[in-house]
């Protein structure tokens, strides 16, 4: 198994890509901490994992809440002794508000998508440094690489921040044996928080940019995250891995 006996934290693990990552990680032998604000959905994923013979625990987490991060990290360490993998997957859709020039939306997108990722890394790095190893996978987006007509530019800014923050963290913590990489999903099914990009007409326009001419599946992103999290990627750090059906190649 590709994550045998590793302890992983997946933020936003209760739904969408995060849930797919949690289920896949567990099936590869990891003990998965599903960390999310959505308690019921998170518990359901944990039950699903357990019923198929995997190991998982739910912990309530708002990624913007510094104190909750401390509690979650302390709990994981006291219960499982180590943190091998962190997947910073939690994020807010670039169209959660229909007004894509809203200042309030800009602040919120940066707070959740960018500051939340920073807080996650900052919270687990001391434990990873102590053990001398670790793998962090940050979920950015194609929105961190190219501009788009249909999402808030604050979303692009927040995902661009994740992309470059990943490279800085990779450089700063390489000597501690910690790898940090980013995954860049393309046009995916609408997120729980999507409004504008859930509109069928907008989705038609979005798909025109994809050479493979279809949306991605959450499991396809999870496969990329698994590869980077595992020891197969032991010489890969600071890399960006688009999973986008060819969108950014064009």
């Amino acid at each position: 198994m590709r994550l045998e006996s590793k302890v992983s934290i997946v933020t936003g693990g209760a739904s969408g890509m995060g849930a797919a990552e949690s289920v896949l990680f567990a099936s590869e032998g990891s003990h998965v901490v599903v960390a999310d604000m959505r308690i019921e959905d998170g518990m359901e994923i944990v039950d699903e994992i357990k019923s198929s013979g995997g190991n998982a625990t739910f912990m309530e987490l708002d990624v913007t809440d510094e104190k909750r991060w401390s509690v979650v990290v302390a709990d994981v360490l006291s219960q499982f002794g180590t943190i091998d993998v962190l997947v910073n997957n939690a994020g807010l859709s670039g169209s959660y508000q229909s007004d894509i020039m809203s200042l309030e939306a800009y602040d919120r997108l940066m707070n959740v998508n960018s500051r939340g990722v920073f807080l996650g890394m900052r919270s687990v790095l001391p434990a990873m440094c102590e053990s001398g190893s670790g793998s962090i996978v940050n979920i950015s987006s194609i929105s961190g690489i190219v501009g788009q007509s249909y999402v808030h530019m604050g979303y692009n800014a927040s995902k661009g921040a994740v992309r470059i923050m990943t490279k800085s963290a990779a450089v700063q913590y390489a000597e501690n044996g910690i790898r940090v990489n980013s995954v860049h999903p393309g046009i995916m099914p609408p997120m729980v928080t999507s409004v504008g990009t859930a509109d069928p007409e907008t989705r038609k326009i979005m798909l025109e940019d994809v050479p493979m001419n279809r949306v991605g599946l959450v499991g396809e992103v999870a496969n990329a995250v698994l590869f980077l999290a595992s020891d197969e990627a032991s010489y890969i750090t600071g890399a960006e891995l688009p999973v986008d059906g060819g969108l950014t190649a064009r």
């Binding site: 279809r214 599946l217 010489y235 890969i236 750090t237 064009r250």
Partner: peptide
């Protein structure tokens, strides 16, 4: 596993670049 991945340049360099 990478069936929705195309056109990418995957850097495998221990962070050198």
């Amino acid at each position: 596993e990478s069936r929705w991945v195309t056109g990418i340049s995957l850097v495998v360099d221990g962070g050198v670049s």
